[in-house]
Amino acid sequence: MHEWALAESIVMAAVEAAQKEKLKSITEITVHIGELQQIEKDIFLFALNEIAKQQKPTIKNNAFHLRTEKSTLICKTCGHNWKYSDMKKKFSETESESIHFIPEVVFVHSRCPKCGSPDFEITKGRGVVLSSIKGLR
């Protein structure tokens, strides 16, 4: 359950930000989940809620809002752009799992579908990002 480690980073970052802003409680945390990381949403949400239980400032029940973000990959050589979902079927189970752990290994296991270049970039939908926090002072 590698989702747990990422959930922990989200909660710790939210708590740090809330302490900086002197919030007494956190009421809403929005998290964007990049497509490439292929997070198991249910497991991730379960981990977020479990880790959130013992925090200061307190985190309200059901505070987490998860938004999935589609990926955009752009080739630096020919300018072609595509999504991870367009090419997902071409990966073996091991390759797909490796991308789940470290999204950048997509550069290792794939090429631009148009020109075959390995020199492309992930401009959207890489991994887990803490997008916003709301709370009470």
């Binding site: 990422l6 980073s9 970052a13 740090e16 803490l130």
Partner: peptide, 11 residues
Amino acid sequence: MEPRTSVIEKR
């Protein structure tokens, strides 16, 4: 916001 930096110290 980049969340991963917050957990490194703990790791």
